[in-house]
Simulated scan of single mutants.
Amino acid sequence: MDRHQEISDESLRSRSRIAAHALWDAMVRPTVEHPEQIPWHADAISCEWLTHHLASGIEGAAVEHMVVGDGDNGSSVRRRLDLTWNAEGVAAALPVHLFAKVTPSYLTRISSGVAARAEGRVLRKITPQLGVEAPKCLCSGYDRKSGRTVHLFEDLTETSGATFCDFETSINRDQANEIVDTLATLHGSFMQQDEVLAGFPVYERFFDAGARNGIHEAHEKAMTQAQSVIPAALQSRREEFWPAMVAARNDHANGPRTLIHSDVHLGNWYITRDGHMGLADWACVCTGTWARDFAYALSTTLHIDDRRNWEMDLIERYLRRLATDHGITVGFDDALHQVRRQLMTALLMWTPTLCPAPGFPDMQPEAMSMEMIARISTAIDDHAALDAFK
C-alpha cells in the first residue's frame, strides 16, 4: 500500500483505453443503436433502447418519446428520464419516470465504473429478496472495454414519495432504529456466506486503490482545511490517523466477512412518504466487517447530541437483531471495540471528499463534507478511537 507505488503496465493500459473511449464519446456523442450497447450518457439513450430493456415480453409496447431532465453530478452522473409510452405500454403500466445513472467521463468511469456490476447485482437480485427499502433497478449494464456503465431506476420521488437526506436532515429515533434494522438485515443475511460473497470485491481493494491514488495526501490536506470543525485534541494526534486507518483496513481480513454497503452516510438515505428509511447508492458495495457500516452510519446520520444519547441502545438493538433474526452472537464490548476502530475508515470517506486527490471528481458540496467531518471526528474523540489501536 505504498502511496508512491508506480502504476502497473496492465493498469496503465486499462486506464489509457478507458480515457480514449471517454474522449471519443465526448467528441462524437454517439447514440446507442443496438440493445446490447451501453449508453455513454443519458442523452445517448434512445426510445428503441428503452423499449428493449423495459418492455420485454409486453407485445406491442414501445416508448414513443423521452425527455432528459435535470439531475446531479458526482462520482457518477444521474439524470431524470420522463417517458411517453404507446397504448400497449400504458395498459401494461410500464414505468414513466426514471433516473439514469451513467459514467460519461474518464473520472466517473475510474471512480465508480468498475463497481457498477456489483451495484447492479445487489439492487436487482439481493435487496428485493431482503425486503429492505432500496431503489428498484430496472436495467443495469457495464462495458469493460470502454468503461461505460448504466443503471435505470424508478424515480423514488414518484414511486415512494422519497425525500433524500442532506446535512440539514434530522433523523428521529424511530428512523434511527430503522437504519440499524436495515444494516442488521443486510449483514446478518450474508455473514460468512462465502458462496455469495465471492462475487463481490473486498473492502481492502477500495482502500488500496485510494491509497495508490493519493487519498492519504488528500486526507492530510483536509485535516488542515477542516480544522475548525475537528476537536482540538485530535489535531495534536494527526500523525496517528493514517496508521490507524491502515490498521482498521486490516480488520476486514481478520474477522467474519459479510456484505456491506460501505457508503452509508446521511446523503445516501432517503425518507419515504410514510416516514420510513431507504438506502440508495450501492456503488461501493463490497465484503468486509459489519462494524464499518455501523460506525459510518451512526456517526454521519445522527446529530451529534442524538448520537451520544442513542448510540449504546442502538448497538444493543443491532446485536439483538443479529442474534434473534440470524443466530449470530457478538458480545457488546467486542462490538463497541470494532465500531471504535472503524470510525477511522468512516473519516477517510470524507476528508478526501473535501479535498479530492488528483484524478478524483468533486463529489459533494463543501458544506456537506464539513458537516460529515465534524460529526465523524467528534465521534472519534468521544470514543477515544485512536486509543483502540494501542
Rank of each mutant, 00 (worst) to 15 (best):
R3Q: 10
S11I: 08
I18Q: 03
W24N: 02
P30R: 02
V32K: 00
Q37K: 01
W40D: 00
H41D: 15
H41P: 00
A44G: 06
A44R: 09
W49F: 13
G69K: 07
D72T: 03
W85G: 05
V96F: 08
H97N: 14
V102H: 06
T103P: 01
P104Q: 05
V122Q: 07
L123Y: 07
C139A: 12
R144S: 11
R144W: 09
E154W: 10
T157W: 07
T159W: 12
A162Q: 10
F164M: 15
C165H: 08
D174N: 14
L186M: 13
A211Y: 02
R212Q: 11
N213R: 04
E217Q: 14
M223F: 12
I230L: 03
I230A: 06
A248D: 06
A253M: 12
A253T: 10
P256W: 13
L259G: 04
W269A: 06
I271D: 01
D274K: 11
G278S: 08
G278P: 04
D281W: 01
W282A: 04
R292W: 07
D293G: 01
A297C: 07
A297P: 06
S299M: 02
H303F: 10
I304Y: 06
D306P: 03
W310N: 05
L314C: 09
L319R: 12
T324R: 15
D325I: 00
T329R: 13
V339M: 15
R340C: 13
T345S: 12
L348K: 05
M349S: 07
T351N: 07
F360G: 01
M363G: 06
M372G: 03
T378R: 09
L386H: 03
D387Y: 04
A388S: 15
F389W: 09
